[in-house]
Design a protein around this nucleic acid. Sequence first.
DNA 1: CCTGGAATAGAAAGCGCTTTCAGAAAGCGC
DNA 2: GCGCTTTCTGAAAGCGCTTTCTATTCCAGG
Lengths: 344, 344
Amino acid sequence: MAERTHVTLQDVARAAAVSPATASRVLNGTAKVRDDLRERVQDAAGRLAYAPNAHAQALAGASRPTVGVICHDVSDPYFAVIARGIMRVAGDNGLLVMLASTFRDADREVAYVSMLRAQRAPAILLIGSGFEDKTWERSLAAELGPYLRGGGRVAVVSRHRSLRVDSVLPENRAGAAALANALLEMGHRRFAVLAGPRALTTVADRIAGFRSALAGAGVPLSEEDIVECGFTRDGGYAGMSSLIDRGMRATCVFAVTDVMAIGALTALRDKGLSVPGDVSVAGFDDIPIVRDLTPPLTTVALPLEQLGEQAMELALRENSGRRSRIVRVEGRVVIRESTGRVRS
Amino acid sequence: MAERTHVTLQDVARAAAVSPATASRVLNGTAKVRDDLRERVQDAAGRLAYAPNAHAQALAGASRPTVGVICHDVSDPYFAVIARGIMRVAGDNGLLVMLASTFRDADREVAYVSMLRAQRAPAILLIGSGFEDKTWERSLAAELGPYLRGGGRVAVVSRHRSLRVDSVLPENRAGAAALANALLEMGHRRFAVLAGPRALTTVADRIAGFRSALAGAGVPLSEEDIVECGFTRDGGYAGMSSLIDRGMRATCVFAVTDVMAIGALTALRDKGLSVPGDVSVAGFDDIPIVRDLTPPLTTVALPLEQLGEQAMELALRENSGRRSRIVRVEGRVVIRESTGRVRS
DNA sequence: CCTGGAATAGAAAGCGCTTTCAGAAAGCGC
DNA sequence: GCGCTTTCTGAAAGCGCTTTCTATTCCAGG
């Protein structure tokens, strides 16, 4: 019952009757070693179930290729799909990926970045809109800055630009505007919006785009038409419910994310309203599940997996210039059955 | 543009004109240090944006509390919810959690375990059914065994028992049997099953339980009634489609996971069949989204978040005995609108 | 004013590994 | 067989940190 007693390279070397240097060379294939010695080392390593100490390896110069990805919640399909894109590219480049969820807790986010920095991870990817919270951004920047200066790579997806790092940014404004125009074309004139926290830049941008397109058609969107609710399925459910309860007059509801739209659809069903008969619903993101809803959701399709791929590639490719790179990604309006023409 | 040049404790110590030992004591609060020295150190550390090298710290004895969780695919809601449970308990105990997806690739799984082992992570959690693949299990055991002997903690959720480690096991058989009985009671006598890979113990157990309950009522379930398809939404879609195309006679379809049931529901809709009018559909797991489907899915509810919590707690609490601990978790049949009585 | 003991700072060892560096062995042409 | 280059192995340094262990300082009591 040996507690915390690890087999070291020394042990292997001793068992194989060679020097640690030779053992290291064999185990890493760093240099040619005489056949019999090599076999003795491999044998000993196997017999002793030797596992190199990554900390010692890292300290001695060899870097272990594990990149870190930090998001708000891995159980949100939006992140999950992006993460998959990241992992694809990482895998192609022989990198392992580890994910962390912050649950929108600034301290936890900083803790993860700090840990990744301390571990000398070759790259850190941040997914998801940050609050426009100066303190938050500052403490994050305080970690990220030195990390970058130390040779680390950072890329973010869909985060506010105040962090001056390479980023992949969805065209939230334009996408929401295009959606608004499509809905206008169907004859809708009275809208309601299920918004997540307005402080989230993603939310703010989508609302702004939506509103400006409406304004272009002379259709107003007042603050009362916007319900600020949780950025989740339950938030969408609650928001939609309260909208119905206070006598909604809108013919179309825009939920700023698909996840929220899902909650909205269920709320409507529970209240006995039909979609799109009584009210049309549209979302944003095009997460995979929305195709399986009844009715399938009209939304703005973001190439989510690509967002992740681009971010990983950004982190992989060295930035030669001094400015941070920005990749803009467009959304595409996808009309499905959750929206319909307004009966005249 | 200093490349890969990190600020070390030495630098801080020098800047503060103290010894590295003192700097270490200040930064870790390990011992009392004279006020003016302490301030000088803290000042220097801040000014230089010092970040300790986790590798060096770990090597010198201080351990960083980051547990690793390995699953097949974080974008599968089943894992995502379990992972959340794990993170809750981990968070309560001051541990950070990092997730990895293997995409059912044995090599990748071993690579992650090996990495975690090399990093001397205090605990490793494995989620998800493993194939009954001797080679796979053996190479995994080869990593895990020494890790455990070295003081590491391991817990698995829903994996075959051949790995002799602490585990949380859903009662797949009993759950599936209970579901079958409920369906029988609704008058169903002809069933089809959408099965994932049969080599997966989870799949095998659920089918076995389902079948035995049917057998108890004198209802046969032949091999032709079982469609083996991918363990995903698309697999369920494809399986259901082929079932329909070859003239299904069943009045009720049991998909061994909710995710597959989702695909099945959409396939049925695409083929113009109504649920539960033409055919009833039931799943297993009760992932959150199934409540938002139309119709909501009848399923066997597993307390997914609890599975994760239990596993984390298992890994946290030292196992004093010599046998591996097993926590069994029951499922509960939840009847929703995707199943109906058979018209007589 | 001196001694003993309690605080506190610094020196140094060592965690496990990689990697130069130098030395030993081996191969070659003369 | 001698001096030369070419392999290959082992000795040793050092990565950045924690932690004993030792040396100093400081104060109380005599």
